[in-house]
Computed example of a mutant assay.
Amino acid sequence: MAERVLACTACHGKEGRATPDGYFPRIAGKPAGYLYHQLLNFRDGRRSYPQMGYLLEYLTDDYLREIAGYFSALELPYAPPAPVVAPPALLARGEQLVRHGDAEKGIPACTRCHGVAMTGVAPFVPGLLGLSRDYVASQLGAWKTGQRQAQEPDCMARVARQLTVDDVSAVSAWLASRAVPGGGQAAAKFNADLPMPCGGVVAPSASGVAQ
């Protein structure tokens, strides 16, 4: 399989560790369900990046599951976070949104879905750490403007539309400043009910109610 995914590692770095500038994100160790959904989204047009669409256009669902499973199983160390230059107030706002959200704006804490450690929840929710500031900001911006979409109901699009430009900058800066704990292992389950329905999550909530 390593030889068959060389086209992936040409952009995403050796073994899917990501490139030094962070433009192409790390895919090694991400939850298999999340990776599979993203491959589907690129292939089926919910996410738009011509190179990805070209590579995946004729691949079957089963083959995409194989690719996702291969990269998900790679347990590789994370590099230390790059220095982040940002005003303390901006970083404080980022931490507030990530850990507690903003109830007045209807923004749930990132940790409600992505886990208290922000390393994701298997098998469908990715971690938020170990990504570059520019990448996180660009993806939140893409959801906010409708350039990135997911399976309906698209919970990330709903959240991103409530974020201001400064909020996006704050969240991306604070996340990029944090080291990845525990080797980046995703949590096995949610620690509470999800704050809203999410089409990309096909798993029971903490209370056993399907989301």
Rank of each mutant, 00 (worst) to 15 (best):
M1R: 12
E3V: 08
L6A: 13
A7M: 07
T9R: 07
A10W: 15
H12S: 08
H12G: 06
T19P: 02
F24K: 05
A28M: 00
K30D: 01
P31V: 01
G33V: 11
G33C: 10
H37W: 09
H37T: 09
R47G: 13
S48H: 14
S48I: 12
Y49F: 13
P50K: 04
Q51P: 10
Y54C: 02
E57N: 12
L59V: 02
T60M: 03
L64H: 00
I67C: 09
A68Q: 07
L76M: 06
P81A: 15
A82T: 14
V85L: 15
V85F: 11
P88W: 04
G101D: 08
D102T: 04
C110V: 15
R112H: 12
G115A: 11
G115Y: 06
M118I: 10
V121S: 06
A122S: 13
V125T: 15
V125L: 11
G127P: 07
L128Q: 11
L129Y: 12
G130C: 09
G130Y: 09
V136D: 00
A137Q: 07
L140Y: 05
G141N: 14
A142S: 14
T145M: 01
T145Q: 05
G146M: 01
R148F: 01
Q149I: 12
Q151F: 13
D154R: 09
S172F: 12
S172L: 13
A176P: 03
A176L: 09
S177M: 03
S177K: 04
S177Q: 03
A187P: 01
F190G: 03
P195D: 05
M196F: 03
G199Q: 06
V201N: 01
S207K: 04
